[in-house]
Design a protein around this nucleic acid. Structure first.
Lengths: 332, 332
DNA sequence: CTGAAAGCGCTAACAT
DNA sequence: ATGTTAGCGCTTTCAG
């Protein structure tokens, strides 16, 4: 922030009107005579006047900025969500302050507080692990918050998701139909709400219903986690896996290939979150295709309504997903 | 932005000091007696006072916010750069406003102006195509700007990059040493500074020096571009390619595999920007491994110095890269 | 339709 | 070490 050459005051003086009138012109207030407006606009252009958004924010109590909280920047899952958010934000002229919470230099509540101190008009939270502290912080503030790709059972925070439980069950059914009898669930963070309350219960229910052994592997988050897990899966006799993470599913796949396994004949893989990564590997992975872009876009749209105190009929939106059958399953 | 319950004034009254003293405490100014400080801190805690960053910004002319300009959000190349930036930004307590310019709803200069209006303390620009308008905007402002992963010959804007020319030559040499004689260069945006002024000239020089045919394919940006290009490459007799994009190189690879080509025996591929994508495919791609995280981190560090009016010895930094030999080349 | 004036919440001289 | 006093640049009643 450096010297601001031209202020609203300069424009007012030059156009021989008051600051108030310039402000009206800048903000498109209709209560300005045509000639006055044109005169002011001419001066604005001539002087290259640009309003100071910080001063506007202080005076109006609106910053036209929203905060984004994401677990990690280098994850295509969140990047695709963010793109949906970004497009809608642009449409409604909001800027985005993005904060990742992978770096443990700052606690999550501090990150949220920092955003609130910056007076963001709203927040979109995308971490799948909604901590108690975060929930507390969200409850304390009157700033609207929307969860994208995650939900919370403790509260009524608005959210946009898919039906994770149904999607999981559907995927497991595909594996079962392909004749696989030893189905495992591979998850990253077992405490993540979506896993804990949706995917894991869905899996447990499924194997119980079908009299199958229960094999849940947790803490498998990245490529190498997945790669290293494969041998254990084989040792346990697993012949079909539903993997929540994208990179980890690819790790398992490559490990299987390297071990000479035949995918999908001997071993089937389905990933529960499809991004670019899972579509470029060979054999291509069968995936639960979540409408990531749409989840982000709908979440941001909902946030604009909330920030505008508009009526929002449904605050917990579930979007449709698709089970896309590729070559990592037999698809009988 | 909603009702702010507690202001600095409330704290001052409650602690029986002036606003100035509270401000000093909040900002860690040492000119406060220990007991006073503690009393103020107690009140701050008790009242849950949080400074309003917008007001601070207006009064101090510093927003502790930097703007990031990236071509697209869903590209791991930029995500990895951003991660380096983010980590250093966190360290120095800067927030990040991220703006992508893929959406043509707004012209680039408007995006930049928007950032400037928000009074960001600095800008990091990552688009590989630095337009004249952007350069003009950067020249007009006194807000520091650093280019990350790109440079500009028209101006002296600080930048952090690698030696693209040298890296390209080295990669081409590898292909040549493997016995390939019909080497192609596959680029995305031919007008991108890095391509136009570094990679393409390096390639032209190389093929001229070695009496090889010159085959440059431009406009190949994403996976399907790459996938579709392969047949043309084969028709042209190409047996080795250096590909600037990550997704497009994977597209070429998969297309080659699908066509039954033997990689690397019949056809070699090197990608000039390694991200996660190029390492999970099989055969794994030989890559020019750019230190993306470091480029981002160094750029952000440089920006902190610039924002702080500190001395910066070298404003055009080149970081070391590495040619990582994988299975898409013979590596003789 | 336009202007005057009072802030928004905080920082930064300048005094003391 | 602490308080006083101006603003920072803009929006927003409230008059007229």
């Amino acid at each position: 922030m450096h010297k601001q050459e031209v202020t609203i005051y300069d424009v007012a003086r030059e156009a021989k009107v008051s600051m108030a009138t310039v402000s009206r012109v800048v903000n498109g207030n209709s209560n300005v005579r045509k000639e006055t407006r044109e005169r002011v606009e001419e001066v604005i252009k001539r002087l290259h006047y640009q309003p100071n958004a910080v001063a506007q924010g202080l005076a109006s109590k609106k910053t036209t900025t929203v905060g984004l909280i994401v677990p990690e920047l280098t994850n295509l899952y969140f990047a695709e969500l963010s793109k949906g958010i970004d497009d809608i934000a642009l449409l409604y002229k909001y800027n985005i302050i993005i904060t990742s919470i992978e770096n443990r230099l700052m606690k999550e509540e501090q990150v949220i507080q920092g955003l609130l101190n910056k007076q963001v008009d709203g927040v979109i939270y995308m971490s799948n692990r909604l901590t108690d502290e975060a929930v507390e912080a969200f409850k304390r503030t009157s700033t609207p918050v929307v969860l994208a790709g995650t939900k919370d059972s403790r509260t009524d925070i608005p959210s946009v998701t898919i039906d994770y439980k149904k999607a999981g069950t559907e995927a497991l059914n595909l594996l079962l139909n392909d004749g696989k009898k030893n189905l495992a669930l591979v998850v990253g963070d077992a405490e993540a709400v979506v896993n804990k309350e949706h995917r894991i219960p869905a899996y447990k229910e499924f194997v119980a219903d079908h009299n199958l052994p229960e094999r849940i592997y947790t803490g498998i988050s990245d490529y190498s986690d997945g790669y290293n897990l494969y041998s254990k899966l084989i040792k346990d006799g697993v012949d079909g896996v539903l993997v929540t993470g994208d990179s980890s599913s690819v790790g398992i796949l490559n490990s299987a290939i390297d071990a000479g396994a035949k995918v999908p004949e001997d071993f089937e893989i389905i990933t529960a979150s499809a991004t670019q990564i899972s579509s470029v590997v060979r054999p291509a992975l069968t995936t639960v295709k979540q409408p990531l872009y749409d989840i982000g876009a709908v979440a941001m749209r909902m946030l604009t309504k909330l920030m505008n105190n508009e009526e929002v009929e449904e605050v917990n939106i579930e979007l449709p997903y698709e089970l896309v059958k590729k070559q990592s399953t037999l698809n009988n």
